[in-house]
Design a protein around this nucleic acid. Structure first.
Lengths: 228, 228
DNA sequence: TCAAAAGTGTTCTTGATACACCCATGC
DNA sequence: GCATGGGTGTATCAAGAACACTTTTGA
């Protein structure tokens, strides 16, 4: 690979905004930095992109290394390329956002990564670098996507009640929704299928549903457009 | 700037998908490559990001250098980070898309950049690298944004007729729209203001309008949501 | 006088919203 | 038996879709 270094190159990193739903509340996973700069501050999990991996792979690798999370929904968000994002040197960062079913990963992630913690969005500490800005973009993107795509299910367990789904939408979008209208609408879509089991608690048991992505894809091809 | 090169770094470039509207047809600006690899093939304008400029600035600089276009609408699209995009070495590219008022720039761009040409979308030649894929993403993004944001005006002259606007939507979205419903809707938005002049031609003259971005921003702050 | 594009309202249909009560269970 | 969340239908309203003819100009 002959290449003349005519100009100095910016370094390239990835950063991941990991969202999870905990007790009906939207949370984000942060890592406490052990090294300078911003030592002791909380930051998004991330790191350098290696020359032999795709940028997507780098995001998945860093996520696994720093938080123990694997096989989660991951999508590119935006590339942050301002000059002094990192005080050490010129670093361009490709930001991703991930959605995890927190119920499954809660204990695991906590044990794998000692310095990792979930923070409620209303309670995020000051972040290192421009990670506050990245987080804001991710929240905005999540809100947008949630309305127009079936990504909310990535935050819920495989089987969930309609109330759980509604509360997710209410928590993320910050609005109150009418129960009857909400149920009418999502059931009319016809890609939520009831499963045999029922949820239990100190009250009437609820029907559980799962998201049928095959049905969903079929509908999409027929020109159907998700919107909630 | 002390930095240890623990790992080899991917190179970082920008590529720009430039859209223009020519005689009611959507076109894209391509550059014919003079160097290997893909010598002679058509490609998107773009180049390396310098260490002392932001990524956005790199896109603007390359656009100006390779096509003579300045002060155009420019927005980041997506970052392409596959391994063998470029046969020479590992290159990650941040793609942008730009919208230009072709009527203003047509002659200028043609003279500034000898190897630059506008291609109708239905007539794009095979492109170098993964630029075909980038172009596809840009078209998808343009279609999406056009429905939900006031970016169509970036493709039209400052003063335009409602028919021109409608034809733009029909051309980009590939659908036929009802004239009366279209006019009713856009005029109800109340951010198109009629100007004194009229368009002329071999037929009845049409009222010209301009997009009032101040009015638009005011509406946005009041919770208004553009959708067409 | 003809061709070509501009301009203009009403009806119908569809989807969104608002709204209140009974049900099943655990404690 | 009571507290808690689960589950259901209808009436009203607003927005979108369908639709055809007259007007103005240049050639």
């Amino acid at each position: 690979m002959a290449f003349t270094y005519e100009y100095a190159r910016p370094a390239l990193t990835v950063d991941c905004v990991v969202f999870g739903l905990d007790e009906g509340e939207l949370k984000v996973l942060l890592i406490q930095r052990g090294l300078k700069p911003f030592r002791g501050r909380w930051a998004l999990p991330g790191g350098f992109v290696r020359v032999s991996e795709t940028v997507d792979d780098a995001a998945r690798r860093e996520l696994a290394e720093e938080s123990g999370l694997k096989n989660v929904f991951l999508e590119q968000l935006y590339t942050f390329g301002a000059l002094y994002r990192d005080p050490r040197e010129r670093v361009v960062s490709v930001a991703y956002y991930a959605l995890v079913r927190l119920a499954d990963f809660k204990t695991k992630a906590a044990s794998d990564a000692k310095a990792a913690r979930w923070f409620a969005l209303s309670n995020v500490p000051p972040l290192a670098f421009d990670h506050g800005e990245i987080l804001e973009s991710a929240i905005a993107r999540l809100r947008g996507k949630l309305r127009y795509g079936p990504i909310g299910f990535e935050l819920l367990p495989d089987k969930f009640t309609l109330s759980q789904l509604q509360h997710l939408y209410e928590a993320v979008l910050g609005v109150a929704l009418d129960k009857r209208n909400f149920r009418k609408k999502v059931l009319a879509f016809d890609f939520l299928v009831p499963v045999a089991e029922q949820a239990k608690g100190a009250h009437r048991p609820a029907q559980l549903y799962r998201f049928d992505s095959v049905k969903y894809q079929r509908l999409r091809k027929q020109g159907f457009n998700f919107e909630l």
